[in-house]
Nucleic acid binder design. Structure first.
Length: 259
DNA sequence: ACTTTGACAGGGA
DNA sequence: GTCCCTGCCAAAG
């Protein structure tokens, strides 16, 4: 870890009277700016390595100083205004695909990084349960810890934690309130009414009897199953026992066999 | 439907 | 370091 030696040096550079080379600025200070998003105006902090922190202006009472303080509490570094946004940030905040967007999640604990990484892979317009994230992150039983991580998601919207929902079909909580979660999902065209209707009947997975594949209801494959060939299942185990195979796209996991 | 128990990573004492 | 406690859950009573 040669990085250990680099940080103090870089910090010392920040104290020199002469301006640091432009390329270093993002490593010494963190830039911030305000930008429009699907949650209204947001404050965004980023280094040269990517975006680190996003908070709706509303959540800090529109106060940029409060945002800077929250950032400092968490990352231990000061903020200075930035002149331009990192590549991809503005489209991403509007919910548009932005492959060029980079996130700086290096200093997070492994588990948090893995949880956020798995969450980031949920396609727009789809949802996954907390248990799915736990499994993708390599800790299938750390379901509740996943919730704890997402409650502190440093980069909401960019890591779409609003797409992580409860296994029973309810939406679950959201750092800025469940109403915003629902709003974001509906804006992505998730058919929440259909999900709720299925859940009402105890159905949490959908299979096609023509392909023999079973999916989460919001998977784009599931949404193409015609009602005539659609079968609902309460658990993935029941579907597998009926000869269905878990979809390779949405990867509904086989839950632990009940002894 | 509601309550209890299980499980677990992180943060604070 | 170690307990202790909490929390966007989940499955069983």
């Amino acid at each position: 870890m040669m990085i250990d030696g680099v940080e103090p040096i870089v910090a010392a550079l920040g104290g020199l009277a002469a301006p640091a080379p432009a390329g270093l600025t993002g490593k010494v200070f963190t830039g911030w700016l305000a930008a429009p998003s699907r949650l209204g105006e947001v404050f965004v902090a980023f280094t040269g390595d990517g975006v680190q922190f996003v908070r709706p202006a509303e959540s800090v009472h529109g106060d940029a100083d409060a945002f800077a303080e929250a950032y400092r509490d968490r990352f231990g570094r000061p903020l200075r205004p930035a002149d331009r946004a990192p590549a991809g940030l503005l489209p991403a905040l509007r919910g548009r695909p932005a492959p060029s967007l980079r996130l700086d999640l290096r200093r997070l604990p492994d588990f948090e990084r893995d949880v956020l990484g798995a969450t980031r892979r949920i396609p727009a317009g789809q949802t996954r349960p907390y248990g799915w994230i736990a499994r993708e992150a390599g800790r299938p039983r750390a379901v509740r810890a996943v919730g704890s991580v997402l409650a502190r998601n440093p980069v909401p919207l960019l890591v779409p934690c609003h797409r992580v929902v409860r296994a029973d079909g309810r939406l679950g909580d959201y750092m800025f309130g469940p109403a915003h979660k629902e709003e974001l999902l509906r804006a992505e065209n998730v058919d929440l009414d259909q999900v709720a209707a299925f859940a009402q009947q105890g159905v949490h997975y959908l299979g096609s009897d023509t392909t023999g594949v079973v999916c989460f209801p919001t998977c784009h494959n599931a949404r193409r199953i015609s009602p005539a060939h659609r079968h609902g299942f309460r658990t993935i185990g029941i579907a597998v026992a009926a000869g269905y195979r878990p979809c390779r796209h949405c990867r509904p996991g086989v839950e632990a066999a009940s002894a």
